[in-house]
Design a protein around this nucleic acid. Sequence first.
DNA 1: CATACAATGATACAAAGATACATTTATACA
DNA 2: TGTATAAATGTATCTTTGTATCATTGTATG
Lengths: 123, 123
Amino acid sequence: MKLDLDFRSDVPLTNQIVEQIQHLLASGALKPNDQLPTVRALALELRVNFNTVARAYRTLDEAGVISTQQGRGTYILEQTHPEAGQRLKKDALESLARRYLEETARLGTSKQEAIEILQSLNS
Amino acid sequence: MKLDLDFRSDVPLTNQIVEQIQHLLASGALKPNDQLPTVRALALELRVNFNTVARAYRTLDEAGVISTQQGRGTYILEQTHPEAGQRLKKDALESLARRYLEETARLGTSKQEAIEILQSLNS
DNA sequence: CATACAATGATACAAAGATACATTTATACA
DNA sequence: TGTATAAATGTATCTTTGTATCATTGTATG
């Protein structure tokens, strides 16, 4: 990967990694489903502790840009376009909700019960 | 088999397999003496390493749900404890609920909103 | 200075994959 | 029909990969 860290910069290494991966994505150098280097491989290349790469990956994960999977690796996600979003999000939510009801119904549970179970979860 | 793994979930793949097989059992889609797919066949279908399936099978074996036999295959056992059925169903419902919340959260939706969407569905 | 905080590194851990193996069943062939 | 061989199936073990937690370092701030 063509990343180039500036160790003298006052912007943290982790942030530099995050930003540069986002640039690669924006420029098309990285595409959905591409596998990123392992945290250790990239760390070696950048001469940095692998935790630093792992932290960058986590930031990107939380931003919904990549998916990091323990034991498997990390992958670029499909980018959901915000402008296409509102309608699609509503549809997606409804389809999730329908699927949840179908599956609980298969277990012989009513919609009301299915909702109560949700409410009882501590989160 | 109708299993559907979420590679982005923080629930380990092995656990997802365990839970979903328990769902199939709780819902009656799997019955005693049914043969499960071989570890390799199911792994291929789920796009997962076959050891991951083997680990899930072992967990179910240790729980007394199935019987795995080297060289033969794996089979659903008779349920010796009647109350195990209730337990199975309760666990199944809870993990379905958790997954629903996890997926809606990923779309930026709160638990309360997730519940309201359920209520708004005409069924 | 002292102390607090942020960034990075070090170490131990957990989940998943790769590879070689053991057991059972199926098949070939004398 | 008996036996050798191959194929199918689960098991054991090690490697790879990301995660969690604590220690270290540097720097601001009082």
